[in-house]
């Protein structure tokens, strides 16, 4: 009886694992570059203050988005 497993094991899918690995790595490298690139600092600082935007009086910094 021809089983699904026979088809899959002979269809040479192994290469896709390597392709996925490379893609994942590229995305990850992209993320790292985008956060360490110069110029990201101001935005990141602003983002890190979002939790304090709901209580203006207690905010540790006056800088806010929008």
């Amino acid at each position: 009886m021809l089983r699904l497993s026979d088809i899959v094991s002979h269809s040479g899918l192994a290469i896709y694992a390597e392709v996925a690995l490379v893609l994942f790595l590229l995305v990850f490298v992209g993320v790292v570059i985008s956060v360490v690139r110069p110029g990201s600092k101001a935005q990141l600082d602003a983002a890190s203050r979002i939790p304090f935007n709901d209580e203006p009086a207690a905010a540790p910094s006056e800088e806010k988005r929008s």
Binding site: L44, S48, R49, P51, F52
Partner: peptide, 17 residues
């Protein structure tokens, strides 16, 4: 943690990574 310490997280950059 930032709310209780009343300080933004140490590194937002690190949190993304």
């Amino acid at each position: 943690m930032p709310k209780a310490a009343n300080k933004p997280v140490y590194s937002y950059r690190l949190s993304i990574v």
